[in-house]
Design a protein around this nucleic acid. Structure first.
Length: 158
DNA sequence: CCCTGATTCGC
DNA sequence: GCGAATCAGG
């Protein structure tokens, strides 16, 4: 019916934008959000900027950068290794059923809760998976696969 | 040196 | 509008 878009995947679907917002509000870093959704870090940051969802106020940014000193994400060596694993992870077609019997609200989220959003953000029954996540990961093993599938457009060359 | 965030710029 | 390139700062 009516002019369907020629694009197979319009990059930013409403679902992705909602996910983006959820992750952003959950306190995940742009890189985490990027790898979770399956797009590049710049794509996430660019979209956030366009949505006016950046953490810095538009008036404070002035000419490129001046951010609050000492508010950068604490980078640990363990995290570096984890990133390598995430970046190199090859998503496979896996239809493992994921049971979220321990779903929780946004406010109940902590490091021991899978942060996979259930239902639509803003909905009355909106909640998170709540399962025990993998070490250092925001998701449980089941949602890990979902979160990290797709996204072959990583770095090409520099 | 490496990382993250934000702006700039070409498509 | 999108995202890579680039810049700025820690």
């Amino acid at each position: 019916m009516i002019a369907i878009q020629t694009s197979l995947q319009p990059t930013w679907t409403p679902e992705r934008i909602e996910l983006l917002k959820s992750y952003f509000e959950s306190g995940l870093s742009c890189r985490d959000i990027a790898v979770s959704i399956g797009v590049s870090r710049n794509a996430v940051i660019g979209k956030l900027s366009r949505l006016n969802l950046t953490r810095t106020t538009p008036g404070e940014r002035r000419a490129r950068r001046r951010k609050s000193a000492g508010l950068t994400a604490p980078r640990a060596t363990a995290k570096q290794q984890l990133r390598m694993l995430q970046a190199v992870y090859e998503p496979e077609a896996d239809d493992a059923p994921i049971v979220s019997s321990n779903s929780c609200s946004l406010f109940e989220l902590n490091e021991q809760r899978c942060r996979w959003p259930i239902s639509t953000p803003g909905a009355d029954d909106f909640c998170f998976c709540g399962n025990t996540p993998l070490g250092g990961m925001p998701y449980c093993s089941g949602h890990y696969r979902l979160a990290y599938q797709s996204g072959p457009r990583q770095r090409v060359a520099r």
